[in-house]
Design a protein around this nucleic acid. Structure first.
Lengths: 118, 118
DNA sequence: TTGATAGTTAGGCATATGCTTAACCAATCG
DNA sequence: CGATTGGTTAAGCATATGCCTAACTATCAA
């Protein structure tokens, strides 16, 4: 659990590209060899491989060579790590709003007749 | 709902930096002026402003000037957009595994005595 | 009105990213 | 074997990103 920040860097960076997201979308429908991943992408194969490298470095995809084809598959754990970070923020934010709401209610019941806006 | 992809690009890109995530973490505990955001960051003010710009461009943060201070606040809708994309992938992926599971169960009950591994 | 505070603009520079082409390697297939 | 298919490596280049310093503007306070 050390240096989780660098993991998140790689994770979100990997997701910040439409080509890479398209690759993930394809892979979430099932494993595929590199050439099939590349098919719908208007780009040279080496470029596709580089994107794949980014996805693997982020832990989002794992791939294995069998014969001369490299089969890629999604690694859903990484995705949920990203989700967890976002979730944690949302929870913090909502808790804050709840506290604020409680506070405002307290004001309301204590000093009837004030107009205390945030 | 046009060109949602560019939105996601900006969104994930904004999240792919530890300084920017730290700013979001701070803001999810409540609004703050730029100078307070900058305090824990070992970086020049202009650099912090640039990060803020990225966050605003991504729709993650909104800010407003009152007097000579600019007060920043989190914009939680943007975060949930990112979450939605991730969620959609997870759902696709899980549905696929369910189908696969069903299929394997079918095989099992039809051809008892085979050893059909994936 | 002068000075301090908070932010902004401009310009520049080092490194990272996203792509390309060309050449190369390794498993099939005829 | 020799050609083809699928992937890989290397080198190079254009643009984007992340930072800096210096100079500037706009409040607020004495």
């Amino acid at each position: 659990m050390l240096n989780q920040s660098a993991d998140l860097d790689r994770l979100f960076h990997a997701l910040a590209d439409p080509t890479r997201r398209a690759m993930i979308e394809r892979l979430s429908r099932g494993p595929a060899p590199v050439s099939e991943l590349a098919k719908p992408i208007a780009m040279s194969l080496p470029a596709v491989m580089q994107h794949l490298g980014v996805l693997e470095a982020a832990g989002l995809v794992r791939s294995e060579k069998s014969g001369r084809v490299r089969v890629c598959a999604i690694e859903p754990k990484a995705l949920s790590q990203a989700e967890q970070w976002i979730d944690a923020r949302r929870i913090e934010w909502e808790r804050r709003l709840d506290r604020l709401g409680d506070y405002l209610k307290t004001l309301e019941s204590k000093g009837e007749g004030h107009d205390g806006q945030d």
